[in-house]
Every structure is written in C-alpha cells, then in structure tokens.
Design a protein around this nucleic acid. Structure first.
Lengths: 199, 199
DNA sequence: ATGAAATTGACCACTTTGGTCATCTTTCTG
DNA sequence: CAGAAAGATGACCAAAGTGGTCAATTTCAT
C-alpha cells in the first residue's frame, strides 16, 4: 500500500474516532474522508475493531518516537522543553490528531474495546513527564521553588502556548519563525522567574 | 417543571451533545440519562434543535453570571484569578459540562445549527479574558514583563492546575481545602516571579 | 494478451434515529 | 370525593444509517 494512502486512511480514521468515539464512529465516514472504497478498508482491516487497535498501536509508536529524538545530553530545562515542542510540532504536521486520539482513549468506554485499550495503555509509561524531563539540571533553579511545581508551570505554559498557536493558524503550512520568536519571549520571562539571578 | 428535573435534563443533554456533537447526539440517550420519557422531552422542546439552542442560551447565561459575580474592586491580579477560579468551580458543581459544551460549539459544524450558533456566539465578548481582567492594577508587575504575557502565563497555570484537580478527583463532593492550599503555593511562586521584589 | 492483485460500490440484514400520540397518572379545583 | 386539566409515558413508525460482504471491474507487471 502506498504510504501516502495509508496516511490518508490513518488520519481519516483518527478524525472520525476522535469525533465520535469507537461505537458511533462510522466506517462510511472514514472511507469517504480517506477517499477509498468500503471494500478497500475492509481488505486492509478485518473489521472496525481491528482498525481501531491498529490506530492505537500506531499512535503509541509515534509517541515513542518523541523519546528517542530527545537529546538527553541537553540538561537545561528550557532547551529541553523547546526541543520537545519542536518534535511534537513535526509530528502534528503529519498526524494532526495523534495527541487528541490518544487523549480520547482514556475516556473511551465501549465494552468491545475497553479491555484491549487498557492492555495497550498499561505498557505506556504512566508519567510521560518524568521521561521527558530525565537528566535535567535542576540546580539552576531558584532554591525556594519545588522542581515539580516549576515543571508543572512550565508544562502548562508550553501547552497553553501551543494550543493558542494551533488555534491561531489551523494550518501547519505556515508555522514560520514568528512563532518561535514569540515562544522565546515567554521562555525569557519564565527563565527570569525560575532561574537564580543571573543565569 | 421542577428545577431539579430541569437540571437533570440540561446536564444529560449537554453530556450527550458534548460527547457526540449535534447530529449524532441521541435523544434516546438523553432521556435515558435524564430519567424522563421520550414524550416528556418533546413536550418541553419541540425538537432536537430547539433543545440544543436552549442549551446554548442557558450556557451563555451561566457564563455571564461569572462577570456579575466578580468583585471588580479587587485590583490584585492573583486575588482576581483566585476569585474567578472559585466562581467557576461553583458553576461546575451544578453544571459539570457547561464549559466543555461551550467549547464544543466552536467545532460544531452541522448545517442544521451552524448559522444559529454563529449568531448566538457573535454577541458573546470575543476575549473573555479582557473582561475578567478589567481594572487590574498592573503597576505591581515587574516592568520588564508585558502584562499580556503575564496574563497568559497566569491563565495557563490556572487552567492547567484546574484540569489537574478535576482529573484527580472526578467528583466534586470532596473539593476540600487542600486544593486551595496547593493553589496558594503556586500563587506564591508566581507572585514571586511576576511582582516587583518585596510586594 | 494474460493472470493476479487491488479496488469498487451496490447490497444486505439489522439497529437506531427523531418524533408522535393514544393512553395512563398525578394534581388541582370545587 | 368527582371530574377536569395537565403531565408523563413508551410502544410505535418511517426513514436513515450501521458494519460488513462479494461479484464485478480496474490496474498493472509480465
């Protein structure tokens, strides 16, 4: 199968599953959106559940990729965060809905797939945070701030910023440099907040 | 109609509309969840669209309530934020899904209701932020930080914190005081970051 | 030109849909 | 207490949509 076609199917299917959940997701909608025929879809996947489980596995693989791409030698937390943001952005370009799809799994409770989801998600690290922030040099941090709280605030800021950007553009073609510049400004503010004076 | 029953219907309907969107939302599910009969529902509302539009109006009224409850004389931004958080929490106790419901309207694109949504949302203030932060005393802020950026960071932190709490408890009965204490700690950190030294 | 592989969409039995309405229950009035 | 008015019910309906099949067609390497 052409990878471009596979991508179309994956994105169309994720879109529908995110929108409607497993049970209400319509295979008719998926094939329409992916521009393939019903028969084709059921050639590749023996049934809806099969497709769903494939998507989960696929999404997990994609996420795993984040961790291998992180440069664990970069010990500065702000640089690390920027790195992760950049990696995520690239993923979103190809699969705009992976993160939403994974999030939707948690709330999914269709009995047909509930147990399989739990099984697949059981292996995934509980706190992705912890892995992303491995080997960070916390000594630069002001001593009156708990690292965990700082981490949370930074995460919330990054997530909030990213959401704002996504809402703003809605098309990933023109990410441009302004976005990175703006993030840099936030970075500077937060650095001046959390780092000891002068670092 | 008993207000308690109305509340049940509103919450059941919002739940279903949030979960499934306008078109796929099932009136059967709504009546089941609200514990009323199909006939009753269609006595109160002439059809699904009617119910949906009522819910929107209702949600907008609820949100509007936030603004009248804010004490605009409180000029300290951290106190203001805590106030808003508290008001929102109380709203969520009664209508756990209003905010999700309103958020879902933006993405809704069923042709049956699209134009009405836009019409109803047109009147709502573009940036709720701006209104919530009216009359804030920005002079306490460190001068090297743009107030707008500070506002954003604070908002992201508050939202992130709130989400974390909601995920943690999933039941509003036991909000307890620990939550407020924990938020206070974040508040102190952020204060020490954004306010001039010693304020 | 040929055979194999890939693709199609009409078709199926079945479920669910939004909405109705004759009937039953509760409440109110005198 | 009778009787009327108002409220609540759920079986019922035509229509639409469901996941999945498969005989027929198209595509393509040889």
């Amino acid at each position: 199968m052409k990878p471009e076609k596979q991508e179309r199917i994956i994105n169309a299917a994720m879109k529908e599953f995110v929108k409607s959940g497993f049970e209400k997701a319509s295979t008719n909608e998926i094939v329409k959106d992916a521009q393939i025929s019903k028969g084709s879809l059921f050639n590749y996947f023996s049934n809806k559940k099969d497709l769903y489980l494939f998507l989960i596995q696929n999404a997990l693989n994609i996420i795993e990729q984040i961790y291998v791409e992180i440069d664990m030698n970069e010990r500065d937390i702000f640089e690390r965060i920027s790195q992760v943001g950049f990696i995520k952005l690239n993923i979103q370009k190809k699969y705009p809905l992976v993160f939403d799809f994974l999030k939707s799994l948690i709330e999914e409770d269709a009995k047909d797939v509930k147990s399989e989801i739990n099984q697949l998600l059981a292996n995934v690290q509980k706190d992705g945070f912890k892995r992303i922030y491995e080997n960070i040099d916390w000594s630069k941090l002001r001593e009156d701030i708990e690292p965990e709280k700082a981490m949370n605030i930074l995460n919330w800021a990054m997530t909030g910023f990213a959401e704002l950007q996504i809402a703003k553009i809605k098309s990933f073609e023109d990410i441009g440099t302004e976005m990175f510049n703006e993030w840099d400004e936030y970075k500077e503010i937060l650095k001046s907040c959390f780092y000891k004076n002068g670092e």
